[in-house]
Design a protein around this nucleic acid. Structure first.
Length: 818
RNA sequence: GCCGCUGUGGUGGAAUGGCAGACACAAAGGACUUAAAAUCCUUCGCACGAAAGUGUGUACCGGUUCAAGUCCGGUCAGCGGCACCA
């Protein structure tokens, strides 16, 4: 046979698949459907990196196997193309982001095709295409109309030198990544989406889907449900100015010796004239404003704060007057922006109390509050120093104090979520324009036509006017006042109000990149529909997604956002299932050869396309799957490809050892059935590495046997075809077996998977003494008798008392002696 | 700091609580070759030993068990996420 010319073979089959639209899927109700989804790539300028082929090849293997199992498979691809890197690249290189995107998409397309992934290219989508973002805007309007989009003052990162709003990622230890200028937090009015309204549903829905535990945990944690109570503390200002706090530990109320409010708490300014040290407090608040929530809540840092002089509060349980502080470890975004501090039982409070010399009272027995706060997550502990709660256990105390608060109108039971609403505005050019206008006259004359109070004056662009096109401009540079680049375009801003017909101004912020990726899986099912975002027919046939694989880094944001959108759409009857993804798995990242995350600056990136040119797509595909446990981080090693290339060469050369035969030979039948079982099961469990190892082992065995018959080769190629589709297709065809992708997946006979004989380990006290071979499935008595007939075992037990005999079929005999 | 994950030969990694190191890479020795590449064969955790073998070994400390890489408690180290990177 000729040498394995991967270049020619791979080009040939890629052309064949493209011309024949082999992997194009249409609705076909005679077949079960299977919707396989990968996270669509962000088309960056560098092209595919070594991390892309891992999840894509994995899902391609599953998709190809499912087709051979008789499923109608939808395996789509598209581009998540809006976003910051493209915009920054465009600004730096003075190329329009649209052009940058076009070039990058072309590069990605060519590279994806060279890997032979069985994507349905007829369904390609691009989030920056007006035909796509028309529906992203339409979906936003549904949120808006449902009252789930609202405006709120939120802090953004503001670089004082570049005068632009920065993403968190662009802020490096308090300074601008590019110019190293000082970054402050600037308050801006922003569009928000009320994901918090779905907090409980997002938790509950996790019970109906097949996600790994680690993903379920991180979602639940992110949502951060807690139950506790809201408690009102009277203040010395008067009855109207009670300070409301949220606590998960109402049982510790008697131990609250001071209060802390966030520096941004509205009472600071409200009480300004009563506070003799207001300047100091304002100064502190200004400093806190520069820090991110992340920096502020770090437990390791030195606690800071300022006592309010002039106003104090009253602990409702003890009746004692207690001081109020501002401190940046209390955040406005969570709870009420104020806490009751219980230094005996909260470590942050304890540190704060130590620093400011505040009393620390033990109210739950069990720890040593001289040394540290006694925090407990179990429900152990007995109440002390707590009046009517004394001697109760913590759970009882919680119930009793909550009742007492409620009876005395001082507070009530409350469930809280850490989850915050989604900041949906970006002051950037390269995103979907938010399709609303502001009408001053409508804002001034309140109407009763459905405009919600929080959106007063904000009017939806009529759906018939979508898409609201991103204006094609020369200047997409950021403005120096923090507004979106669109704000400088008079022709864009000025419009008429769809309600009153008067002059109105368009919203100039754009949507975050998350918007387009929150619903793309729906569009894939019906990508060319210009009447609806998806047709009912496509929805009912293709949805939900059967298997979605993506990175762990997306499990709290993207995955939660898209579940949120889906749940909203389910609520308004636009989709037919409560969850978008039936099964979600996550791959591990690929690190550079030095064990560090691959990045340009570290210089440890690997260009997979160079490797495809050198060793062929099949070899690179195989290596990416062989590199290690799919769900774990893996370190790249270019040398490793060699072993995979060698294996494919050996498979190719099997053609020289081919003999006739319609059935498996006696010599290989057992091994082949076992390999069929192993490969099939391993693919379902994402254990691609061991599936490949099993095929390598079979190939080694065939080489040792010296020949392979047609039935055996045919089966081996079927098993290998999802992994190395080009080589398998070519060999299949050249030996007259037909088209491999049209074959049925291989079956195994469980009876032929067993071994006739097995090796049994003989142990004394758990230590291996000898090994014997017995027929497989031998019963306990037989095994024990065989063990006792063994000389080494006999010698070891002679004169000793047998305490225990452990016999495990097909594994071992362990005799415990004294 | 919080949440999630990981730690096994020179390297990547295998191992339903039951033979640690499958399958590969690298390395060393050999065959073929004028030579090189490719290919094929052999060796390959560590210590002692010529060998047979004996002991030891899965980050560290402790526990459960007849039996622990695997389960439990603690420690250390690394990785990912932390809400405007995607």
């Amino acid at each position: 046979m000729d040498k394995y010319d991967f270049n020619a073979i791979e080009k040939k089959w890629q052309k064949y698949w493209e011309e024949n639209k082999t992997f194009h899927a249409e609705i076909d109700k005679s077949k079960p459907k299977f919707y396989a989804l990968i996270e669509f790539p962000y088309p960056s300028g560098q092209g595919l990196h070594a991390g892309h082929p891992r999840p894509y090849t994995a899902m391609d293997i599953i998709a190809r196997k499912r087709r051979m199992q008789g499923y109608n498979v939808l395996f789509p691809i598209g581009w998540d193309a809006f976003g910051l890197p493209t915009e920054n690249f465009a600004i730096q290189n003075k190329i329009h982001p649209k052009t940058v995107t076009k070039n990058n998409v072309a590069k990605f397309t060519q590279q994806c095709k060279s890997f032979g992934w069985s994507f349905d290219w007829e369904r390609e989508i691009d989030t920056t295409d007006p035909n796509y973002y028309k529906w992203t805007q339409w979906l936003f309007l549904q949120f808006f109309k449902a009252g789930l989009a609202y405006k709120k003052e939120m802090a953004v990162n503001w670089c004082t030198m570049c005068k632009v709003v920065l993403a968190n990622e662009e802020v490096v230890s308090g300074a601008c990544e590019r110019c190293h200028g000082e970054v402050v937090r600037k308050v801006k009015s922003q569009w928000m989406l009320k994901i918090t309204e779905f907090a409980q549903e997002l938790i509950d829905g996790l019970e109906d889907v097949d996600y790994p535990d680690r993903i379920v945990h991180s979602q639940i944690n992110w949502i951060g449900k807690s139950t506790g109570a809201e408690v009102d503390f009277a203040t010395t200002v008067g009855d109207n100015d009670v300070l409301r706090v949220y606590t998960t530990r109402p049982d510790t109320l008697f131990g609250s010796t001071y209060m802390v409010i966030a520096p941004e708490h509205p009472y600071v300014e409200k009480w300004a004239d009563k506070l003799s040290n207001i300047d100091e407090i304002r100064d502190y608040a200004a400093k806190a404003a520069r820090k991110s929530d992340f920096e502020r809540s770090e437990i390791a840092k030195e606690k800071s704060g300022v006592k309010l002089i002039g106003v104090s509060a009253v602990n409702p349980a003890t009746g004692k007057e207690i001081p109020i502080f501002v401190s940046d470890y209390v955040l406005t975004g969570y709870g009420t922006g104020a806490i009751m501090a219980v230094p005996g039982h909260d470590q942050r409070d304890w540190e704060f109390a130590k620093k400011f010399g505040l009393p620390i009272i033990e109210v739950v027995k069990g720890g040593d509050i001289e040394k540290e706060a006694y925090e407990l997550d179990t429900d152990e502990g007995v109440m002390v120093n707590s009046g009517f709660l004394n001697n109760l256990g913590v759970p009882e105390a919680k119930v009793k104090i909550t009742q007492w608060l409620s009876e005395n109108k001082l507070g009530e039971k409350k469930t809280n979520y850490k989850l915050r609403d989604w900041v949906f505005s970006r002051q950037r050019y390269w995103g979907e324009p938010i399709p609303v206008v502001f009408c001053e006259s409508c804002a001034e004359s309140p109407r009763s036509d459905g405009v919600r109070p929080e959106a007063l004056g904000w009017i939806a662009v009529p759906e018939s006017e979508l898409p609201l096109m991103l204006p094609e401009v020369e200047n997409y540079m950021p403005t120096d006042n923090g507004e979106s680049p669109l704000s400088t375009l008079e022709s864009f801003i000025n419009t008429t109000c769809p309600v009153c017909g008067g002059p109105a101004k368009r919203e100039t912020d754009t949507m975050p990149q998350w918007a387009g990726s929150s619903w793309y899986y729906l569009r894939y099912a019906d990508p060319h529909n210009d009447k609806e975002f998806i047709s009912n027919e496509a929805l009912e046939y293709w949805l939900p997604v059967d298997w979605y694989n993506g990175g762990m880094e997306h499990t709290t944001l993207h995955l939660l956002y898209s579940r949120f959108w889906h749940k909203f759409l389910f609520g308004i009857d636009k989709v037919n299932t409560p969850e978008p993804y039936l099964k979600r798995t996550a791959h591990g990242m690929i690190l550079g050869e030095d064990g560090e995350k691959m990045s340009k600056s570290r210089g440890n990136t690997v260009d997979p396309n160079v490797l495809v040119a050198q060793s062929g797509a099949d070899s690179v595909r195989l290596y990416e799957m062989f590199i290690g446990d799919f769900e774990k981080t893996a370190t790249w090693n270019t040398q490793g490809i060699k072993g995979c290339k060698r294996f494919l060469d050996r498979v190719w050369a099997l053609g020289d050892m081919l003999v006739d035969g319609d059935e498996f030979s006696e010599k290989l039948a057992g091994s082949i059935h076992r390999t069929i079982k192993k490969v099939g099961e391993d693919i379902e469990e994402l254990k691609f590495n061991t599936a490949i190892a099993a095929m390598m082992a079979l190939a080694n065995e065939i080489y040792a046997a010296g020949e392979i018959n047609r039935a055996e080769l045919r089966t081996l190629l079927v098993l290998l075809s999802p992994f190395a589709p080009h080589l398998a297709s070519e060999m299949f065809e050249s030996f007259g077996f037909g088209l491999v992708h049209e074959q049925e997946w291989a079956d195994f006979d469980p009876e032929l998977c067993t071994f006739d004989e097995v090796e049994i380990v003989l142990q004394i006290n758990g230590r291996i003494k000898d090994r014997i071979v017995v027929r497989s499935g031998a019963d306990r008595n037989t095994l024990l008798a065989a063990a006792k007939a063994n000389d080494i075992i006999n010698a070891a037990i002679a004169g000793k008392e047998i305490v225990k005999e452990i016999i495990v079929t097909d594994k071992l005999v362990n005799i415990v002696v004294k």
